[in-house]
Design a protein around this nucleic acid. Structure first.
Length: 284
DNA sequence: CCTGCCGCCTGCGCGC
DNA sequence: TGCGCGCAGGCGGCAG
């Protein structure tokens, strides 16, 4: 889905409804879903059968569930992936891609993914930090995230601030929505060259990222439609709190100027040109 | 190395 | 109605 708050909502659901349960069997219904698992669908299913989920962890937008074997089930939801916990006998979802059945006969864990950008894999020695996400930077809600390190990395970059916020090797968990929301809160334009940002500006951006993520988390994340739901299929309510994302043409909540949408990386960047004046030297 | 672009998918809403 | 287009919360791979 989803960005950090939505993935964290899912993680909490998995912790509650899946941890401690033993897997009877797993099945894969679309080959693309396990394309990153080296052993293919058979290896994936074999690595899960009989194992027990021990925990539910997250870094940025990645989720992983350590198993009692020392491996971990690693999930990335991509643009449209959902992890839901539903009764065993409930009808197959249209885009059901994989499922896990439990030995206790209770609700199943299902991976539903319309666009198949998401993926699942069993990562060896994934109990602590899966090897495949080693290149992902800590997310801003982790205690180990170092604001000073982030500032220095930004200072060396030659790109725009929004592109940098979306770069998961600099900071993880930030996506298109929360990048725009945090920049609006800090009154900085998305094309501001990173090397011109002061240390204080960078710290203020990080504080805004944390604020907007915490606020979203408190109400169950952002759901524009039925694609973005928690493990029980319930929507979050943060959409009604968005200040710029998706509000093209509507008045800025601070100054009333119509919110502008600019094409950006085959997607969109939303901003208020009065609150967030475009820098003379813009980068994107 | 670093930066930025393209492709991967399905579905929806819009204008014609 | 139908069709084509643009758009959608992401990221890996690769070219320059």
């Amino acid at each position: 889905m989803p960005e950090l708050p939505e993935v964290e909502v899912i993680r909490r659901g998995l912790e509650r409804f899946v941890c401690g349960r033993t897997i009877a069997s797993a099945s894969v219904h679309h080959p693309r879903t396990v394309r990153r698992h080296l052993g293919g669908a058979d290896g994936f299913v074999g690595a899960l059968a009989g194992r027990r989920f021990e925990a539910a962890r997250r870094r940025g937008k990645y989720l992983w569930l350590p198993l009692d074997s020392g491996d971990a089930l690693l999930a990335h939801l991509g643009m449209s992936g959902q992890l839901v916990v539903v009764p065993q006998d409930s009808a197959a979802e249209k885009h059901l891609r994989a499922r896990v059945t439990f030995a206790d006969g209770g609700p199943q864990l299902r991976f539903v993914d319309q666009r198949t950008f998401g993926n699942l894999m069993v990562d060896p020695r994934g109990a602590t930090l899966p090897a495949l996400i080693a290149h992902i930077a800590p997310d801003p809600l982790e205690p180990c995230f170092d604001d000073e390190v982030f500032y220095r990395a930004l200072h060396r970059r030659r790109t725009g601030i929004k592109r940098a916020l979306l770069d998961q090797s600099l900071v993880s968990g930030v996506g298109n929505i929360y990048a725009d929301e945090a920049l609006w809160r800090t009154r900085l334009h998305w094309a501001r060259p990173t090397e011109t940002l002061t240390r204080n500006e960078v710290f203020v951006i990080l504080a805004a990222v944390r604020e907007v993520m915490a606020a979203a988390l408190a109400v169950g994340g952002t759901s524009f439609d039925s694609l973005y739901v928690n493990v029980n299929g319930e929507s979050g309510y943060f959409e009604r709190s968005l200040d710029v994302y998706g509000r093209a043409g509507q008045p800025c909540r601070r100054c009333g100027t119509p919110i502008r949408r600019d094409p950006f990386m085959n997607r969109s960047a939303y901003s208020c040109l009065r609150c967030q004046p475009r820098p003379r030297r813009a980068r994107w």
